[in-house]
Structures are given as structure tokens and as C-alpha cells.
């Protein structure tokens, strides 16, 4: 996919700008402001029914709709990719209801809505990344009662979380949590970074962009301001480590990036390619070639000198 910044047509009639009514936006905006003032704390909000099912990003969509201005440029990714169903439909949703410009290029976007990846390219000051969050409470699977988890956060009583990580070590010999890896924000609240691979956790630390998190079904909004300390929980003798990959991306030869496994056939054939589709495309167009990158037929590219 190689769409550049695209200007959308006039917005769908009968809807307010960016779908939500103004009162809803104000309520969400107030929650966002408190979330920024208390980094990592989950602010309850009156999540609305959205024209998509829970689990498809209703929280992220409401946050995006509330911050979006007419001049914003929106990028939406689903597992790093701009061209999967969830990303395409949310991008279309905002093209139709807000007629904002959209892009696939991380650099050009002012607002990036993501379902579980942080782009490989370093985000800059002034950008906002909006995470879609399924379960915002990092302690939920350890303590099902909301009244109790509230109290644990109020008292900063996070021993339970360390016990969970310790049990990982006791059972597997290492911390086996690979996604939704808990972090401590600005030295106070323990936060669920949404199910991003733990590979992305270090990017949250002192990130120049503002990070907003929206959980629609669970009705919570939380935030990390720019340049805020984000520490992945660990132990002195079992320090936090991110995933590593043996081989570079098979298409663009990038190393030190998060790779997806692609099954090629039913005989065990597979390849590992960048999960961030925009990053991979830009590298290929800059001339980087991975081991499995094939040339497109001249008939497709229209390049006669290649024939």
C-alpha cells in the first residue's frame, strides 16, 4: 500500500464533526485533561455506543474523535500495519465523519491511532498517539473486584504484580509476559500499556509525543505526557528484556525492529517481515532489499528498462 496524504471528500451529512456530539466530546476532553495531569491513572468516563463492536477500538475512536481538529492528519495502524481491516475501517470512519486528511506515513501524521504497536520511527513533539485498550486494569486478572483494585492503586500497593512476575520466573525460568507488560509511570501508577508487544515498552519511556489510552467497554481513559519516565517492572536478577530476532526483515533487511511471522506454505516455509508496514515500505523504496524480496513483473511496475 502506498497511499500518501489523501484529502477526503466532504463529510457525511447528518453527523457532527468526528461523529460524537459536542457534550460527549467535552466530557471526554475533561477526562483526557485529568488523565494527563495524573499520568498512568485510569480516569472513568461515560463511554458511548459507537457504530462498531467492542474490541474494535471504541475507546480509541472516542479519544481520537474528541481531540481531532480540522487540520489534523490521521494515521491508523493495526499491529503496525496500515492496511488491515480494523485500520482501514477506522481511517474511513474519520474520513467520512470528519473529512480529515489521512496518511500512512508516520512522519506526516499529527494523530496516530494504534491497536497494539508503536511505529518504528521515533515519534516527535506535537504528535499524539492514541492506543486502543481492551483491559485497562493491569491488576484485573489478579484481583477481579474494581473496588479492590482502586484501593490498591490508591495505596500504591503493587506487590501482587511482582508476585505474578515472580511466578513466571518460578514456572518458566524467566518473565514470560510478552505483551501488555506492566509499566510504572512517573514513579507512581502501575499501568497496562495495552497489548503492545513488550518490544515497544522502551519506546514509551521519555517519548516526545503525547500518549493517550482509551478503553471503550471498560470506560477508562489514561495518559502519559511527553518526556515522562516509563519503567517496565522487573527484578534485579531478572532485568527487563525485549524480544530479539535472529534474522533481519526478509523484505527490507531491517534489524532491531519488530517482525511478524508469515506462513508461506504447509511444509513449514515461513518468512519474518516488519510489522510496521510504513517503515518497511519506506526502506524498500530507499533501496534496502531483504533476502526474500522479489522484483515485481515489469508489466505491473510499467518500468520498461527492467524488461
Amino acid at each position: 500500500m502506498s497511499t500518501h496524504v489523501s484529502a477526503a471528500a466532504s463529510p457525511e451529512a447528518g453527523y457532527n464533526f468526528a461523529y460524537l456530539d459536542e457534550q460527549t466530546k467535552r466530557m471526554i476532553r475533561r477526562a483526557i485533561l485529568k488523565a494527563i495531569a495524573i499520568p498512568g491513572y485510569q480516569v472513568p468516563f461515560a463511554s458511548r455506543e459507537m457504530p462498531m463492536p467492542y474490541g474494535w477500538g471504541t475507546g480509541g475512536v472516542q479519544v481520537t474523535a474528541s481531540i481531532l481538529g480540522r487540520d489534523d492528519v490521521l494515521k491508523v495502524i493495526d499491529q503496525g500495519s496500515d492496511d488491515t481491516t480494523n485500520a482501514v475501517s477506522i481511517r474511513k470512519f474519520f474520513e467520512r465523519t470528519a473529512s480529515v486528511r489521512t496518511t500512512t506515513h508516520t512522519r506526516e501524521a499529527t494523530v496516530i491511532q494504534t491497536r497494539h504497536r508503536i511505529p518504528e520511527e521515533t515519534l516527535r513533539e506535537g504528535q499524539v498517539i492514541v492506543y486502543q485498550v481492551p483491559i485497562p486494569e493491569p491488576l484485573r486478572f489478579l484481583e477481579p473486584r474494581e473496588t479492590e483494585t482502586r484501593k490498591l492503586h490508591a495505596l500504591a500497593e503493587y506487590g501482587l504484580m511482582h508476585v505474578k512476575l515472580y511466578e513466571d520466573i518460578a514456572r518458566h525460568g524467566h518473565i514470560a509476559t510478552t505483551y501488555a507488560y506492566p509499566v510504572e509511570v512517573a514513579g507512581r501508577y502501575i499501568m497496562d500499556p495495552s497489548p503492545t508487544p513488550k518490544f515497544d515498552n522502551p519506546k514509551m519511556h521519555l517519548m516526545a509525543a503525547l500518549q493517550l489510552f482509551g478503553a471503550g467497554r471498560e470506560k477508562r481513559i489514561y495518559a502519559i505526557p511527553p518526556y515522562t519516565e516509563v519503567r517496565s517492572l522487573d527484578f534485579e536478577d531478572h532485568p527487563f528484556r525485549i524480544q530479539t530476532f535472529k534474522d533481519p526483515c526478509a523484505l527490507c533487511a531491517a534489524t532491531g525492529v519488530y517482525l511478524d511471522e508469515v506462513i508461506m506454505d504447509d511444509r513449514g516455509g515461513r518468512m519474518f517481515v516488519c510489522s510496521d508496514s510504513d517503515f518497511c515500505e519506506e526502506r524498500r523504496s530507499a533501496g534496502h532489499r531483504g533476502s526474500m524480496l522479489a522484483d515485481a513483473p515489469a508489466a505491473l511496475t510499467g518500468d520498461s528498462t527492467h524488461a
Binding site: N16, F17, E22, K25, R29, I67, L68, G69
Partner: peptide, 10 residues
């Protein structure tokens, strides 16, 4: 209202 409120909030 829509544009101004968004700018002020921003």
C-alpha cells in the same frame, strides 16, 4: 462552536 471548542481544548 465545533471548531473553536476543539482549538481551545487543543
Amino acid at each position: 462552536q465545533v471548531t473553536n471548542a476543539q482549538q481551545i481544548f487543543g
